[in-house]
């Protein structure tokens, strides 16, 4: 009987215990979650978190059930010797059942998630949204407010001059640009007001990632990609770069300030000199 006699069954029981312990420990870690997403401060983020939790529950259930069954079968049938194993080829009823059930759950999840996505990305920003332009560069974030005239001035690549602080190449020949306010590595926004960002890059790919807002958007040279959101809580947060952009990718940080309207106006004013 070749190797069969000295194949220890107990080891399979141990593996069963391992799978059960893994399932329980992991599930516990996700339920207790000493580390979790940072708090959400975005209006849309509420839906995102809800969908995330729903999906986590379903994924977690699949994970736990699968490991429980795996352990159970190993425990029961591991190292069994007497008689013959079951000669069992298929069962159409069972196969149809689990195929249909999984298909319904998975596709259902997809449709549900798509609704959240559509609400966030397939809608236009509200008419009163304030527009701010974001431009990534190696390795800093530039922000631009249109100023009192509400219009952004023209930019030209050949006007870019880092030593003069013209990081985005603002063209001084365009009157619309004279009142534009630019900042580097700090962005402030008023709380509870819809904001639209136009995300650009002047060199390679970057990705504008604000964990508390629950989204990130790649900055692509040659494109201005719009995203909109509403922040609901004041405070100071961080913007990270989430797309590999070179050696200092890990340092590409900006401060993200959410302020009351009055604070914001004062801040903007202090910047416009």
């Amino acid at each position: 009987m070749l190797l069969a006699p000295d194949l220890p069954g107990p080891l399979l029981k141990l593996l069963a215990l391992f799978f059960w312990a893994l399932a329980i420990a992991t599930a516990t870690a996700f339920i207790v979650h000493p580390i979790w997403l940072p708090e959400n401060i975005s209006l849309n983020g509420v839906d995102v978190d809800q969908q995330l939790n729903l999906t986590l529950c379903i994924a977690g259930a699949a994970f736990v059930i699968a490991h429980m069954l795996l352990g159970l079968f190993l425990w029961r049938f591991g190292g069994k010797q007497a008689g013959r194993a079951l000669y069992w080829h298929e069962s159409h009823r069972m196969e149809t059942a689990w195929t249909v059930v999984t298909a319904v759950i998975f596709v259902g999840l997809g449709l549900q998630g798509s609704r959240v996505w559509a609400r966030e990305y397939l809608t236009d920003p509200p008419a009163n949204a304030m527009t701010i332009e974001v431009t990534g560069q190696q390795f800093a974030w530039n922000f631009r407010y249109p100023g009192p005239d509400g219009k952004f001035g023209r930019t030209r690549p050949d006007k870019v001059d880092d030593s003069e602080g013209n990081y985005i190449g603002l063209d001084d020949g365009d009157p619309a640009g004279t009142d534009d306010i630019t900042t580097q590595n700090v962005i402030a926004i008023p709380v509870n007001r819809p904001i639209q960002l136009i995300i650009r890059s002047r060199d390679v790919l970057h990705s504008f990632f604000v964990p508390v807002l629950r989204f990130k958007q790649d900055a692509v040279p040659g494109m201005g990609i719009p995203v909109h959101f509403t922040a609901t809580k004041t405070g100071e947060y961080e913007v990270a770069c989430a797309e590999l952009c070179g050696m200092q990718h890990y340092k590409m940080r900006a401060r993200f300030l959410v302020m009351t309207d009055t604070d914001f106006n004062a801040w903007l004013k202090s910047r416009s000199q």
């Binding site: 220890p8 399979l12 049938f77």
Partner: peptide, 13 residues
């Protein structure tokens, strides 16, 4: 895979 394990004589190699 799970159904294959069910009712088997699982050898621990």
């Amino acid at each position: 895979w799970l159904a294959t394990l069910w009712g088997g004589h699982i050898r621990c190699t």
